[in-house]
Design a protein around this nucleic acid. Structure first.
Length: 755
RNA sequence: GCAGAAGUAGCUCAAUUGGAUAGAGCGUCUGCCUAACGAGCAGAAGGUUAGUGGUUCAAACCCAUUCUUCUGCACCA
């Protein structure tokens, strides 16, 4: 027996070497035809996962640890089943998140902003930061034991992925699914960029609610929490059935110098969405600074007057009195005017939801702006549909494709309650604003003719297509063109991830073999951001699904139930946990007893408990090895016929376990399989079977002794195999030093126990 | 407002979808310390499965209802 086993298991000493052994073996890479040594038992089936790419903004957190553990379990299990198994690694450039992080750091150190450095200089700095971060992340990922094929590593912003983005953009533009339009968008004055609807969060706050009228002779009182936006009002809307206001409908009022500022023309219109019970039952419509008002204005052909600009200041259009004022100052000025002139009827406090930026938490300004959008309702014709229930030649919208993928059952979400959430999201989906006014990201592959736009401030008109060029490559007479300075929403490139990582737009072997991928495993918090966008992209560009199953894991919370975050300083560092307890223990602690989609509260005690388990596995192995030293391994094949009844009973029990575990693994119930293995190994194998074997082995009955030895070896072997996906390091270390493994075979590619 | 989840031992969570005495880890207590166990073993205490009512041979699980907590979405101007 190897002397190693005389000491307790030392994860630190083991893990790095074992990972190197695996990497060197080349088994992370699916070879032509098979990924297991024993090619006879290898099937033609494939199993593929693309890793949800961690952001290059720093380190791995516990959420990543869970993700890596679950995915590695799936991958190792399927590899042991003999499937051609691929797990593709990568990282995400995370546009806004990374840019603002680097901006902050540079400002802290050098007191410079990105404009001081210039676009090129700044991007170089961000790239360096990203590179550094990537190295850290890759090292940490390896520490978790993740059996990723590093030869296929991808980055959402590398050359190949950029080609995929440009190609996707062009194809969508040509199909009319991407358009440029002057529309109301979510604007973050701090990030100086648009945000998609999903990137806006709501925070409840107390707000002052003012009821007033525009002028002394204006007949209707209206209410608002934002008096300063009223400088841009163009109408007042009332419910068509509201008797109070019937006589004013259709009338137009002119207000001279409203609040001492601009002249307003207010038309009284009807809209059935107006609640007569709320406020005064009359709403001042500000088309430029509210999504809903904008829609009302479109229906009624009302002008859109932009009174707030991108820096959250009042524009010239609101008159010289207000121009340039900050929102807060303008608000006070309006209120003061209303009070002074006896126009303010009432001032009360209400609960209100403030829209804030999910990155920087500053308030969002809805404002009209010329941006690129993905049209989710526009119809396109399917050319070669692989989508279940949607035929070639059929006309569909992106919304339809996204909904159909789940409805048809072609994609299954685990747990299924998220399917409802998904439908609800789709039903409320509006066009996706994809352009961002930041530098770090995929620059939009659209150019405008510079000659035609001598005045560079004039926005490129969406209707004048001859002045716009969209292409994979820049136009040939580049000197006459200027590329759109904006970049794409980071989720645009992430949406391509399942196939851009496999070589698309080239028709690679990888793409043919591994797409659609088998499973997409990620946290439920990015179901809309990412999962839905992947279904969208793949649905249009490949007319196929990106994955067959979606497995959603929960979020990690601290003992108070709060989401772990850096700002709260409550995060458990997975690397620290690995150093303390070992990666195997951490993996078990994040798996066992946690169903899909359920949040988990992680604590040190649980990880520690699985460290104890690792040690138990170690000691059981030691016991088996030291008590079978005189066992003739040639007997291994024939002994089952001579097995004594008591051992036979144990083998039957093991058979039951194997069946159960296989069923759980196939049904994605890793949390159950892990627990069962734990329980069996400790409380049956160690506590009962081994205890009993002590008598048998020292007995003079040779048959009984041999039977017992055979049984111990067999159970240990089968257990190690089944435990391997969960605790790969310790099981491999034992396998490498096991007396039966004289040729140094690798457990990772052993065959999963047959039932 | 709409939707979803959860409520089980002191704490953190399970219970293979309606099936036997509701199980683990940590913690507590009592013995051991035994030829693998520094992290060991044997055993114990601890439960009205949030409450009430119902369906069933059988309910933590299904139905109705009440209470509590959390999450997502939509928002009122």
């Amino acid at each position: 027996m190897n002397k190693k086993f005389l000491k307790p298991y030392d994860s630190k000493e083991t893990e790095e070497n074992i990972y190197k052994l695996w990497e060197k073996s080349g088994y992370f890479r699916p070879k032509d035809g098979h990924s297991r040594v024993d090619s006879k038992t290898v099937s033609d089936e494939t199993f593929s996962i693309v890793l949800p790419p961690p952001n290059v903004t720093g380190n791995l957190h516990t959420g990543h640890a869970i993700m890596l553990a679950i995915e590695d379990i799936m991958v190792r299990y399927n590899r042991m089943l003999g499937k051609k198994t691929l797990w593709v690694p990568g990282t995400d450039h995370a546009a806004i998140a990374t840019q603002s992080k680097v901006e902050k750091e540079i400002y802290k150190k050098e007191k410079k902003n990105r404009h001081d450095l210039g676009r090129e200089g700044f991007l170089k700095r961000v790239s360096n930061y990203a590179k550094n971060s990537q190295d850290t992340i890759i090292n940490q990922t390896k520490k978790m034991g993740a059996s990723l094929d590093w030869s296929r590593e991808a980055f959402t912003l590398d050359e190949k992925r950029n080609l995929a983005v440009r190609t996707a953009f062009k194809q969508m533009y040509e199909a009319g699914l991407i358009y440029r339009g002057y529309r109301i968008v979510n604007w973050c004055p701090k990030c100086q960029s648009t945000l998609s609807d999903d990137e806006v969060e709501h925070e409840e706050q107390k707000a002052r609610f003012y009821t007033f009228k525009y002028s002394a002779d204006f007949p209707i009182y209206i209410s608002t929490t934002r008096p300063e936006t009223k400088l841009g009002d163009t109408s007042v809307a009332v419910n068509p059935n509201d008797k109070r206001y019937k006589k004013y409908i259709g009338k137009e009022f002119e207000i001279k110098k409203f609040a001492g500022g601009p002249n307003l023309k207010i038309k009284i219109i009807v809209d059935k969405n107006i609640d007569p019970e709320f406020g005064t039952g009359a709403v001042g419509i500000t088309p430029a600074h509210s999504h809903i008002d904008y829609e009302v204005a479109q229906k009624n052909d009302l002008p859109v007057i932009k009174v707030i600009d991108e820096y959250a200041r009042i524009t010239d259009e609101a008159g010289t009195e207000y121009s340039g004022l900050k929102i807060k100052d303008a608000r006070e000025k309006v209120i003061e005017y209303l009070k002074k002139n006896g126009l303010l009827e009432k001032e009360e406090e209400i609960n209100n939801n403030l829209s804030i930026c999910y990155r920087c938490n500053s308030p969002i300004e809805p404002l009209p702006s010329l941006q690129w959008f993905v049209d989710v309702n526009k119809k396109f014709k399917l050319k070669n549909s692989k989508l279940k229930g949607l035929k070639t030649e059929q006309e569909v919208s992106l919304k339809k494709v996204m909904k159909n993928a789940i409805e048809s059952g072609q994609i299954e979400i685990i747990p299924d309650r998220f399917e409802k959430v998904y439908y609800h999201w789709i039903d409320n989906l509006r066009d996706w604003c994809i352009s961002r006014q930041i530098w770090y990201g995929h620059q939009i592959p659209a150019w405008r003719r510079t000659q035609m736009n001598a005045d560079k401030k004039t926005p490129m008109d969406a209707d004048e297509k001859e002045n716009v060029y969209v292409g994979v490559e820049a136009p040939k007479d580049i000197e006459n063109w200027e590329q759109d300075p904006d970049t794409l929403d980071t989720w645009f490139s992430s949406g391509l991830w399942t196939f851009s990582t496999l070589g698309w737009p080239e028709e690679t072997n990888d793409l043919k073999t591994f797409h659609p991928t088998s499973v997409l495993e990620t946290g439920y918090d990015i179901l809309f951001f990412w999962v839905a966008r992947m279904i969208l992209m793949s649905g249009f560009l490949l007319e196929d699904i990106p994955f067959k199953k979606v497995y959603l894991h929960g979020l990690v919370r601290d003992e108070k139930g709060r989401k772990m975050s850096k700002s709260l300083d409550n995060a458990i560092d997975p690397i620290e946990a690995i150093n303390k307890y070992g990666a195997d223990a951490l993996r078990m602690a994040t798996i066992v007893g946690i169903g899909p989609g359920n949040d988990l509260i992680i604590n040190d005690e649980k990880i520690k408990a699985y460290k104890h388990f690792a040690n138990k596995i170690w000691n059981v192995s030691r016991f088996v090895f030291s008590n079978t030293e005189d066992f003739d391994s040639d007997l291994e094949a024939e002994l089952p016929s001579k097995i004594v009844d008591s051992d036979k009973k144990y083998l039957d029990e093991l058979g039951g376990l194997k069946k159960d575990v296989k069923k759980d693994m196939d049904n994605f119930k890793f949390y159950l399989a892990g627990e069962k293995l734990y329980h069996y190994f400790w409380h049956r194998f160690a506590d009962v079977i081994i205890e009993e074997s002590k008598n048998k082995i020292k007995s003079f009955d040779e048959k009984e002794k041999l039977s017992s030895q055979w049984t111990l070896i067999h159970i240990l072997k089968e257990s190690l195999k089944m435990l391997h996906p969960f605790m790969p390091f310790i099981t491999e270390e034992i396998w490498q030093n096991a007396p039966w493994n004289k040729n140094g075979k690798i457990l990772m590619v052993e065959e999963w126990p047959k039932i």
